[in-house]
Design a protein around this nucleic acid. Structure first.
Lengths: 142, 142
DNA sequence: TTGATTGCAAATGCTTTGCAGCCGC
DNA sequence: GCGGCTGCAAAGCATTTGCAATCAA
């Protein structure tokens, strides 16, 4: 779907000494094409739909690997116990979760940067990651 | 331990039509005395230590109830899949998780309020809850 | 060829649930 | 006494793991 990203993955895998395999390509492709956060189950189903047939255990292992490579990101949004996955967005962003319709919007703003700066300068805390999730009602549901 | 909170719980339970029971008192007491976030397992152990002997299932049920009453709050901080619980802090606060020593600090500041205001005014999103978690290295571990 | 990676199935760990008996009201 | 709660044990899910077979390099 996205040839650039496809190439990125392969290059990064090789650089780090990992092998380029069918399951890894499949999961990556699905994740790139996704427009929303996916559960592991959904990723598995989508790889099937794309003709790949990847085992669930491999999806787990691959997503962990992608996270380690900084390419994917897990979060526990919405209902249920299951983790949800998305591409690691280079821009700092946060999530708006509507508690009625369940929609998850991404919001890019300076807020995350503000938090980072505030802590770095005043409190001796070396910020690594900022996770900001806001729940409420979206414009359509309020 | 804290007579005021003890009384608060009982009053609130009765108001809402719930019964005041031994497990509920035990879990509440443990949670009030805790200085950090506790897993369900830890809450169970501490009730035992306090001489209560409460079943794990009841701890789960009680914590869910306390959350519904707005008295407790769950979050998935630190390592592992287990939820961790704390008293619902009336002030808006956020968490600083040190990835080396695992310590979780509470930080009270205007940041959460800023987020709330920003979204309420500009984006038509009715904010319900703001969850902000920052991971990194604390002053001692950096 | 060689060892990383996969698929499969079993295991693990947190959490929920059904239900009989108990206890707060 | 009635009905909500508890304890116990079993079930449910998401996720992990052991291992033999497979496949990228």
């Amino acid at each position: 779907m996205d040839a650039v990203r496809e190439a990125d993955l392969e290059a990064l895998l090789r650089t780090r000494g990992y092998r380029v395999t069918r399951p890894r390509r499949a999961v990556w492709e699905v994740l790139c094409a996704a427009e929303r956060h996916l559960t592991v189950e959904e990723v598995s189903a989508l790889t099937q739909a794309a003709g790949y047939d990847v085992d669930l255990a491999s999806v787990y292992r691959t997503l962990d690997l992608l996270e380690e490579l900084g390419l994917a990101r897990a979060s526990r949004l919405g209902e249920g116990d299951a983790n949800r996955w998305e591409l690691a967005h280079p821009d700092e962003h946060f999530h708006l979760v509507c508690s009625r319709c369940g929609r998850v919007d991404h919001h890019i703003g300076s807020l995350v940067a503000q938090v980072r700066e505030h802590l770095d300068t005043g409190h001796g805390f070396a910020v690594d990651e900022v996770e900001l999730t806001v729940t409420g009602r979206c414009a359509e549901c309020r």
